[in-house]
């Protein structure tokens, strides 16, 4: 489920040798120093991931291509702002791509996502299968566990909002639920998440 490309979370460190994150960190730091070869390496390592992120939010390939180019332009100019103490390199890169994609989505009048969202109205647990118990509790696993503690509709809305970069209004329209309820479910879900993630 989390396959493909670079992991976002610390789990890459628990994998084979824990080298992905460190390697990427070194590459970003080299880019910050103006190293063009490092920039190309960074692109090759991460472009598919970031393009996937942009495409998921924007839907349209041509928009996602524009935003991908903007994203790497920003990365080249702002790599000096990357703080390895604060976030993993892939988190930093993905968040730049998401921000640019969401800004683009807001700038376009049209609706990017129309697929209906089905919300469970009870506490039936339809959580995804938990990952292997043998897996260490890294940040990704912790988020899974904390999301599983939410009501199904809170979890569905939060996940959809993140993947699609959708506004409250769009989530309300797609789920057929009142705007106030959608807001309140998401906000309560976020509070629970925070309590679970920052015990």
């Amino acid at each position: 489920m989390r396959g493909g490309g670079l992991g976002m979370s610390d789990r890459t460190e628990t994998g084979s040798g824990g080298s992905d994150r460190e390697r990427l960190r070194d590459v970003v730091l080299a880019v910050a120093g103006g190293d063009r070869a490092a920039f190309e390496t960074l692109y090759r390592l991460t472009a598919a991931k970031l393009f996937g992120v942009c495409l998921r939010i924007l839907g349209k390939r041509s928009d996602a291509e524009d935003v991908l180019q903007e994203t790497y332009t920003t990365i080249w100019h702002k790599a000096g702002l990357f703080d390895p103490e604060r976030a993993s390199p892939i988190t930093w890169l993905v968040m730049i791509a998401r921000n640019k994609a969401i800004d683009r989505a807001r700038a376009d009048a049209g609706e990017q996502h129309a697929a209906p969202i089905e919300l469970a109205d009870d506490l039936r647990d339809d959580a995804p299968e938990p990952a292997s118990a043998a897996e260490a509790e890294d940040s990704g696993r912790r988020l899974d566990r904390c999301l599983e503690q939410l009501e199904p509709r809170q979890r569905t809305l939060i996940r959809t909002a993140f993947f699609d970069g959708a506004t409250y209004e769009s989530l309300a329209a797609r789920s057929g639920a009142p705007l106030g309820s959608v807001k309140s479910w998401i906000r309560r879900g976020l509070i629970k998440l925070k309590a679970c993630l920052e015990p």
Binding site: M8, K49, R56, A87, M95, F163, L193
Partner: peptide, 18 residues
């Protein structure tokens, strides 16, 4: 902090070759 909290969700997004 929220970026770090929510970032693992992006693991689920399939990479697409640009």
């Amino acid at each position: 902090a929220w970026q770090v909290h929510l970032a693992p969700l992006a693991d689920e997004i399939e990479p697409v070759e640009p």
